[in-house]
């Protein structure tokens, strides 16, 4: 089910119009909503109560942000994503020992300590290389405490370590000290919004932890992870909804430069809030370049691989 259920609705007509015109970066947002198959009736209703009948993109975006603020990026309680309202998309069968990975923009992590980004990345790198260092652990613990406290409970987008570890370790399992790791990982996970363009590099941290770390945060509640859909975060042209048919996880865009043949689909899921621990820090570094592939190109390839599974592809 999705917004296509009532094709005569004013919102659907608005989506169709928006998807036909305008700039590609805007068009794709409407396309995503048309393609989305994973919304339950309850979630759709919940969303529609925020957007009513938008007259323009500004109204729609404001309504969307209002929905996300109230239902997804909550400061207490559970985001709609991990409630029974999203039951069909909940994931419960994952091997608990496997590693998940998440790339975070670290810009604000040093604020509470008044650290510059350079200092922050230096401390984190020192800690990761040598957790027994004299000073870095105290600083990292403080950073973590502030970060955990000031993060809201929004769904956390993650990928699987196995799918990206080639970027971080060589076949023998030794760490690759590749300076480009952050750029490459950003591209592999389709995180095109991390784009320094011609400006300052973006400080990032890579967190790695096990599925069991997520589950153990609230063991009694099995609703810990889900396949992401268009309602689970702010709009992004780099997000693509994943068909229901044949796909049990989300699939991120691959922004890595290269031929179509080299395009890789990577699984992505969202999980509920967990408090990060120092042991989760795996790398700290900088994103220095724009993505290797444009959003448009990546989506074109992405759709060529998935279009047969999309139920509403013909609506585009």
């Amino acid at each position: 089910m999705a917004f296509q259920k009532t094709k005569s609705s004013s919102f659907y007509q608005f989506l169709k119009t928006t998807a036909k015109g305008s700039h590609p970066e805007l068009r794709v947002i409407a396309e995503n909503f048309i393609l989305e198959e994973r919304l339950t009736g309850q979630r759709e209703d919940s969303y529609e109560s925020h957007i009513a009948a938008p007259a323009n993109v500004g109204d729609w975006q404001e309504g969307h942000e209002g929905y996300v603020a109230e239902k997804i990026n909550v400061v207490s309680g559970t985001p709609e994503t991990f409630t029974a309202q999203n039951q069909p998309n909940l994931i419960s069968k994952l091997d608990e020992n496997q590693y998940l990975v998440r790339l975070e923009n670290a810009t604000r992590l040093g604020n509470a300590l008044g650290l510059t980004n350079n200092e922050l990345i230096d401390y984190l790198s020192t800690f990761i290389k040598n957790p027994g260092d004299k000073d870095a652990p105290a600083i990292v613990e403080k950073i973590l405490a502030d970060w955990n406290k000031t993060r809201d409970h929004r769904p956390v987008f993650v990928g699987f370590w196995d799918e990206v570890k080639d970027l971080m370790v060589d076949p023998e399992g030794k760490d690759r000290d590749a300076p480009e790791w952050a750029n490459r990982l950003r591209d592999r996970f389709g995180l095109g919004h991390y784009d320094p363009d011609e400006g300052e590099p973006i400080p990032v941290v890579l967190l790695r932890y096990r599925v069991s770390d997520v589950i153990n945060g609230r063991p009694a509640d099995p609703k810990f992870a889900a396949v992401p859909n268009v309602l689970d975060s702010k709009w992004s042209p780099f997000f693509c909804p994943t068909p229901v048919n044949g796909w049990n996880e989300g699939q991120s865009l691959d922004l890595t430069a290269g031929n179509k043949d080299e395009y890789a689909l990577n699984c992505e899921i969202v999980h509920r809030y967990i408090a990060y621990r120092a042991s989760y820090f795996y790398r700290a570094g900088w994103i220095t370049k724009s993505p290797g592939r444009t959003c448009e190109e990546a989506r074109r390839i992405h759709f060529s691989l998935l279009q047969n599974d999309y139920k509403y592809f013909s609506e585009l």
């Binding site: 805007l26 947002i29 500004g58 095109g192 991390y194 784009d195 702010k234 992004s236 780099f238």
Partner: peptide, 11 residues
């Protein structure tokens, strides 16, 4: 949140 900021919007 009334302005869509394209490629940067998710930030």
């Amino acid at each position: 949140g009334r302005a869509y900021m394209g490629k940067l919007n998710r930030n």
